[in-house]
């Protein structure tokens, strides 16, 4: 299992951020008194010294604030088919795939490409055979597209952060809305946890997140909205802040908000060895349908094809008190000890 957490989150070759014509973060505006095309290049470049250390440095002065003499009248980083990175990020929000063969991607995430590439919906002809190999459930396959051919393909998703990950004979479970593209050497399976997909095998995949992704090792408890996915460790369980939610006082607090609810009484708990992927905001990405499971006894989520919000199974099982109706009283009854 290679899941190198020490790897920079945007892939092995950091994109050259100093090439962007906008002022980098941390220094949102050019220093006062200077004309807009900032002359303070030195400062900007210093801000990125750490990231630059590991990568091959373009000659200084080639990047930085756009020079008035720039050829073609353009900003400094001009990519063409040869200079685009190979299977790596162009910037935090766009990923370049060096396509030679096929690649699976979510519908509508291509922004541009060079070369001869065909996009075909999954589920017909030759592709049907690939489908059999790579998707366990044909039911969600219509959200995916096969890109076939040769060329450089740029992917992006509503300006969310993109990261690529390498799996080596491993498995990783990811929230369905976050998975953007993957190599056909990987198999995509529907997780038994509603709203999650599992990738198994060896290969590269691209996932989107709202803000950069952090890798943490279990044991850890995470906020449900910050969870992007996990690799290798056992599937998480729910954890509730027991003392805060327990008993009559806890129930009243929960229902009325009196005494204050912190909003953090519920977490996902991870144990074992592996990696947990967290995003740095609590804004969820829109969930993709992962397909319906067969309604069958013992299958979690069956009969509940799509649970909005992404944290399926968050409610405690309802144990209804006979004669009291069905108005969430099971939960209440437990709380108040009826």
């Amino acid at each position: 299992m290679s899941y190198p957490p020490q790897q920079p989150p945007y892939g092995q070759q950091p994109y050259p951020p100093q090439g962007q014509p906008y002022p980098p973060q941390g220094q949102p505006y050019p220093p006062q008194g200077q004309p807009y095309p900032p002359q303070g290049q030195q400062q900007y470049q210093q801000a990125y010294q750490q990231t630059q250390a590991a990568m091959q440095m373009p000659p200084q002065g080639q990047f930085g604030a756009p020079l008035p003499q720039a050829a073609g009248g353009a900003g400094p980083t001009v990519h063409d088919v040869n200079s685009l990175p190979v299977n790596d990020n162009v910037n935090p929000y766009a990923f370049s795939v060096d396509l030679n063969g096929s690649y699976y991607l979510q519908k509508g995430k291509m922004i541009a490409y060079y070369g001869e590439i065909r996009f075909s919906g999954i589920g017909r002809g030759v592709i049907d055979q690939m489908l059999e190999r790579n998707f366990n459930s044909p039911l969600h396959a219509s959200d995916w597209v096969v890109a076939e051919g040769r060329g450089k393909l740029l992917l992006a998703d509503r300006a969310f952060d993109l990261n690529s990950y390498d799996l080596e004979n491993g498995n990783l479970t990811v929230r369905s809305g976050n998975l953007l593209a993957f190599e056909p050497t990987l198999q995509l399976k529907q997780s038994i946890i509603p709203g999650f997909l599992t990738l198994i095998g060896t290969g590269k995949f691209v996932a989107a997140s709202n803000g950069p992704v952090h890798f943490v090792e279990p044991p850890i408890r995470v906020d449900p909205q910050a969870l992007v996915g996990w690799a290798d460790c056992p599937a998480p369980c729910h954890h509730y802040d027991h003392s805060y939610m327990h008993g009559l006082i806890g129930g009243l607090r929960h229902l009325t908000g009196l005494g204050g609810a912190s909003g953090e009484e519920h977490q996902f708990e991870f144990i074992g060895a592996g990696q947990v992927l967290l995003q740095s905001t609590e804004t969820l990405m829109a969930e993709r349908s992962v397909g319906q499971v067969h309604a069958e006894a013992g299958v979690p989520g069956s009969g509940v094809p799509h649970q909005p919000g992404g944290h399926g199974g968050q409610q405690l099982p309802n144990v209804n008190v006979p004669g009291l109706g069905n108005v969430n009283l099971g939960d209440l009854g437990r709380r108040f000890g009826f």
Binding site: Q20, Y22, G72, G73, A74, G75, T77, V78, H79, D80, V81, L84, V90, N91, Y93, A94, G108, M110, I111, A112, Y113, Y114, I117, L154, A156, R158, A159
Partner: peptide, 28 residues
């Protein structure tokens, strides 16, 4: 642009195809 724009060079024999929703501008 929503997210920093990526500048892609187009030259003879190397056409570029762009998703209309991602297109911002072009010169040349």
């Amino acid at each position: 642009s929503k997210g920093p724009a990526i500048i892609l060079r187009v030259s003879q024999g190397m056409p570029l195809r762009v998703d209309p929703g991602a297109y911002v501008a072009h010169t040349g």
